[in-house]
């Protein structure tokens, strides 16, 4: 597993693949965001974003996700410096804050549903749910991967310090976070413009 092959670029194959995937994901979210921007004011029935968004709540969940990125940075740092316990605590914090974020999103979606905005109510809602739902799915996958890493390090103990894998997960997690910042701006702040 850890036989490091020499590569032409000097970057580990898996890390390179993650960067490539991130490039691809940019186009995925780019399409979703464009789709949202096109559709957000085309609905023929309500409710619209202005009527329904709760900026306080979303700010809180954004802050939560940003904190998880800080924890991720710590996890990568402690992994590099071979400090097992702090790394495990950091990873646990990332997973926990990721779960909090998903909880916020669940609450938000059910609240919107209660307010009368379903997936098929209007095209604003449909493109909103598709965009934020796709992001939520990415967070969920991230939480799963990070939990798996945490469990692996708990079982294997000091023997397991896979710098590259933790760093690659970090790349993914930060990317998902950056995408959220764009979504937060485009979806939740643009209603004030």
């Amino acid at each position: 597993m850890s036989t490091h092959l020499e590569t032409n670029t000097g970057v580990d194959n898996r890390k390179f693949a993650m960067w490539t995937l991130i490039g691809s994901e940019c186009f995925l979210f780019g399409t979703l965001i464009t789709n949202y921007l096109i559709n957000r004011n085309r609905s023929v029935t309500g409710p619209t974003g202005q009527e329904i968004f709760n900026i306080d709540l979303t700010t809180l969940s954004t802050f939560d996700l940003l904190l998880s990125s800080v924890a991720m940075a710590f996890a990568v740092y402690y992994c590099k410096h071979k400090k097992l316990r702090p790394m495990q605590w950091s990873l646990a914090t990332v997973a926990l804050f990721g779960l909090f974020f998903l909880g916020f999103q669940y609450y938000e979606f059910s609240h919107f549903l209660h307010e009368g905005l379903g997936l098929s109510t209007n095209v604003f809602g449909a493109s909103f749910y598709m965009l934020t739902g796709c992001h939520g799915l990415h967070v969920a996958v991230g939480v799963m991967i990070i939990s798996t890493l945490l469990i692996k390090s708990l079982i294997k103990g000091e023997a397991w310090f896979n710098d590259d894998v933790v760093e690659i997960c970090g790349l993914y997690w930060h990317f998902v976070d950056v995408i959220w910042i764009i979504i937060f701006t485009v979806v939740y702040l643009f209603v004030y413009v």
Binding site: E25, F27, L28, T31, N35, L119, N122, S127, M130
Partner: peptide
């Protein structure tokens, strides 16, 4: 990724009643 999203939109239109491609509800 672009066609992935477009195909998901078709699937949503067909299975979950969204109207991305239905001008009657604001789609295009």
């Amino acid at each position: 990724p672009v066609i992935t999203i477009a195909l998901v939109m078709i699937t949503f239109d067909r299975h979950f009643g969204t109207g991305f491609f239905n001008p009657g509800v604001g789609g295009s």
